[in-house]
Design a binder for these strands. Structure first.
Lengths: 189, 189
DNA sequence: AATAGTAACTAACAAGTGTTAGTTTATTGT
DNA sequence: ACAATAAACTAACACTTGTTAGTTACTATT
């Protein structure tokens, strides 16, 4: 059983750099330099640049998939399910702020795992859509354009990684509360 | 007076490719190939790859700056101003779907013009913030966390480019209407 | 017919790319 | 003390990158 701490350090460093400049603009020499070693040394711990991206994106995508599963199984109202989804996004994003940038912006650079990623994403969106649909059916949610509601909420949740790091004193509970309220009730007085 | 149609074709082609893979991952040979010519031929019309990015991003950023100016000068309620901002985003995004991807994801690859871009962006956000602030003061908008409201609305508006192309039968009027309603009143019944 | 402008080409460059091979050094468990 | 492992190194590879130089062909204006 390996501890793999060095490998994790590399992935962590790469994740930070990927957020700043994107996967394609970051070179193996950039990653090595940030760690104070030579590029060739990275290959004692990782298989390829592509594998780093894969590790970052797929693990996050699976976290979302698992979280959505839990939300679906919980026996609460549709509105409450939406609140749980907001909480899920806040939690994952707060723990992996940098990685969320890759998930959002570099997924198209996945090679072998691209199809798998797209499958996870499509399924996630479809589950989200179904929760909204159910809410409309049960008269908890306004019967407005389904896709626009989905798009609007997902956009905000997916962009969270851009805002969260700015708050030093992040209270995830409070953020979840405020954000849910805004997405559900709007800003009108 | 030059017509520059060829230059515009190059920028248009590049914009499309930039949206698919990002600025860094698109090569001059990619752009040339998409036009059926050789990479060196591009330089008869453009100065550099960097200048292409500059053209795409700065012109869009200035469009937003100008639009915001108009909104500020209009003598309507704060809520109505927000509706005008939504309309501005929908209009620009519908006209430049591909370019919006660069504006959102590749601005950090700007070189000489990076500071200018950041200035435009900061000013835009500050103006947006002031409209919300005024709305709260005049009791049109709930007195909730200002930054979260700003973040939430901007995220949705900035992500519009990802959804708009999926709608073939885009009715910008209707989209603006639905989106404004959602952002202002939420989804609660 | 001569000129200028537009737009393509081939060939080449210097620098940078991800990655491999082979080696050295330090640490750790027996 | 020995062997094994982890983790770094140098050197090099084949390929790709943005870009320049110099040239050729076509078209429109004088």
């Amino acid at each position: 059983m390996k501890l793999e701490t060095r490998k994790e350090e590399i992935i962590k460093t790469a994740t930070k750099l990927f957020k700043e400049k994107g996967y394609s603009a970051v070179t193996m020499r950039d990653i090595a330099k940030a760690m104070g070693i030579k590029a060739a040394s990275l290959y004692n711990h990782i298989n390829s640049k592509q594998h780093i991206l894969r590790d970052i994106i797929i693990s996050l995508a699976e976290e979302f998939t698992n979280g959505m599963q839990t939300v679906q199984l919980s026996e609460v109202s549709s509105i409450e399910k939406l609140r749980l989804i907001v909480a899920l996004h806040v939690k994952i994003t707060a723990n992996s702020t940098y990685g969320m940038a890759s998930l959002n912006n570099d997924w198209m650079h996945l090679e072998e795992q691209l199809d798998y990623y797209l499958e996870l994403r499509d399924t996630y969106e479809e589950n989200f859509r179904n929760i909204l649909r159910e809410g409309i059916k049960k008269n908890e949610i306004i019967n407005s354009n389904l896709e626009i509601m989905l798009f609007s909420m997902l956009s905000t949740l997916r962009s969270l990684y851009l805002w969260i790091p700015k708050k030093e004193d992040l209270n995830t509970e409070e953020l979840t509360q405020n954000l849910s309220h805004m997405l559900i009730n709007g800003i009108n007085k």
